[in-house]
Simulated assay, not measured.
Amino acid sequence: MDKDAGKKRAAEEAAKHIERGMTLGLGTGSTAAHFVDLVGKRVSEGWDLRGVPTSEATRAHAERLGVEIIEPDETTIIDLAVDGADEADPSLNLIKGGGAALLREKIIAHAAKKFIVIADKSKRVAALGAFPLPVEISPFSWALTVAAMRRVLTEQGFDGAPLELRARDGAPVKTDGGNLIIDCKLGRIENPAALEKALAAIPGVLESGLFCGMADMVIYGDEDGVSIATP
């Protein structure tokens, strides 16, 4: 399967939901980048659109295309957010965070009136967990947070699950907010909503990459077309 073709088709289908005058939540990653390209194309055609990016990379990409970037205030209405996912199950629960932007992604997805996920069809799974679950944590005394995560994961049935501090070139990966990412190799998550809630209760955990009950639609693309899943 040509995954990039699938990503493009999914982004094109999501772009059909854009209307003039919208404020858009712009996701992070290779699939979301195709959607940003389409937003830029509409702006170049004279559409009045504004964007709220979920990462500095997306901000830079959108600005290069001439998309107006705004800093939300309490009155801002995000009409539509579009983002990718690392996995999506039949109930549209997601694992996100492979691009280390999960906290900002969840803030924008939660605020949006409509949240559409776009992905190539390989991201469609029967159960979450084959993709390591990212958890964004504060760098302050981070090892204590990891110890608490191990206790909670044991309580949730993941005793001994490998937890790894995400690193690149020998240094910890830092999010745009200066936080750390712990990747949890859980194998299979039977109750993602319960796990999301349990991890969120740990001091030091800022967000997990579990997005449960948030997606209004998941669009899967392949070289032949798209399929659409709704709750």
Rank of each mutant, 00 (worst) to 15 (best):
A126H: 11
R104P: 00
A147R: 15
A215C: 04
I70M: 12
A10S: 10
D89K: 03
M149F: 08
A81Q: 04
G97Y: 06
D2K: 07
V152H: 10
A11Y: 03
A215F: 04
A85L: 08
D216I: 07
A14N: 02
H34I: 03
A14T: 05
V218F: 07
G187A: 11
F115R: 01
F140K: 12
A143S: 09
T76P: 00
G98K: 00
I78Y: 11
A200R: 15
W142T: 07
A194F: 01
K106D: 05
R188T: 13
S208Q: 09
I116F: 04
E13T: 13
G27A: 07
L103S: 05
D224M: 05
W47S: 15
I95K: 01
E207C: 14
S30V: 09
E56T: 08
L24P: 02
E74Q: 12
L210E: 05
S44H: 06
L144V: 14
G40I: 10
L153V: 05
P139A: 02
A161H: 07
D176V: 09
D79V: 05
P90V: 00
L26W: 03
P139W: 03
K174P: 12
A127H: 05
D86S: 13
T154L: 02
V226Y: 02
M1E: 12
P139V: 11
K96S: 02
V173L: 14
P231C: 00
A161V: 11
K7F: 04
L153E: 07
V173Y: 11
F211K: 00
D89S: 04
